[in-house]
Design a protein around this nucleic acid. Structure first.
Lengths: 206, 206
DNA sequence: TTACTAGTTGACCACATCGGTCGAAGTATG
DNA sequence: CATACTTCGACCGATGTGGTCAACTAGTAA
């Protein structure tokens, strides 16, 4: 790990991308260091020179992934915004940007969470749990529920809205699958998303 | 395969359950026949006596799975029902019962669909595709859209409703996770589900 | 030129697991 | 006792694993 940090950025990125990609697609035991060095176009020796063991590489990646998510979450999600849909908008944009900039990050973190017996030290596990916890509370607490229609419980309104946005996002991902994003196109998708949110507002707000 | 059909039901079920479970959790190449015989509590020799190869076992399982799904789909989904939510109700009940009676069936079929280069012969692949196609059309075509509220396009109303039901179902699964189902409890969940549907009706119908 | 260093490689190691085989032991029937 | 049918799991060659290490390269200093 000592020498890894001093590598030129391009090679560092190649290695981390390859490793995150591999760990995103397979659980820890099935993820192959052979596959990682092949995709990163480095010799096997180098990987074990930078990281003494597969486990050390894994923990390094989890740490970096959590770091990125922590930074972005703070940046995108405003816990003081009382309007539910407005807050969901931030969360949706967060997801979109993560998908664009770090396509494998969500899958990677997902795999870490799914791991049967946690492969990570307590300190990392705690950060991971905190992130999950914060993700929920920062979305659903401190919301001004008086704006919602009265004939459905506020709790249920929030669930229905988030399920709808989730479904919309999933459909969008399928539509975008494989497409290379030009910024201009992206803007039109965001436009469409905002109209979708206004529909939800019409349906679920007074 | 000749002798397999003549086994006593209990052993047959043990083997099929074990095999479907294994193929549901891993893609074809990673699924282990060793694991299957262990879980089914039979010797390895027997498995390769009933099915000559892993591939033959796999194809047999896909055929049986499709058979079950085809039967149940016909039984639960009424393509002539013009009310959208009513039709979704049938589909939701189908899913619930499959989860109860054949817990690994959905995952198994999902894995078959995900397989990069299809491991199944054309005849099976065609049945699989037909099932997926029918699943979509039988849910969304021939619906009486005049009942929907006018300020949102009918297409979008149907998506919103199905996303909401999907979210509800997923939450229910988490709640039920690990719980052993007593029929009585089950009824109360169905009751709750019907109230949920009536909420959706209030929201999305005129 | 020579000597030393730092970076890099992939053949190689012991081990595990894979799909599949097969000789032998067990059981039932005659 | 003999014959036939089940059943088992040790075993096979092939493949893949995380990790090592002798050897090669390129640059620098004397």
């Amino acid at each position: 790990m000592k020498t890894f940090e001093t590598l030129d950025e391009a090679k560092k990125k190649r290695i981390m991308d390859a490793a995150i990609h591999e760990f995103a697609e397979h659980p820890y035991e099935q993820a192959s260091t052979n596959q990682i060095v092949k995709e990163a176009r480095i010799g096997k020796g180098m990987l074990f020179h930078y990281f003494d063991t597969k486990q050390a590489l894994y923990e390094y990646l989890v740490d970096r992934a959590l770091h990125v998510m922590e930074e972005l979450s703070a940046q995108y999600i405003d816990g003081s915004e009382p309007d539910f849909i407005e807050r969901m908008k931030g969360s949706a944009k967060l997801k979109m940007d993560v998908y664009r900039l770090h396509p494998d990050l969500f899958h990677f973190i997902g795999q870490v969470v799914l791991e049967k017996e946690s492969k990570i030290p307590k300190a990392l596990a705690a950060r991971l749990e905190k992130m999950q916890q914060d993700g929920l509370t920062s979305l659903f607490s401190g919301i001004d529920t008086s704006k919602f229609r009265d004939d459905v419980p506020a709790e249920e309104v929030m669930k229905l809205i988030s399920w709808s946005i989730e479904g919309y996002g999933k459909e969008l991902l399928v539509k975008l699958d494989g497409q290379t994003f030009v910024e201009l196109e992206m803007d039109s998708y965001i436009e469409e998303f905002y109209t979708f949110l206004s529909v939800l507002r019409r349906i679920y707000y007074k």
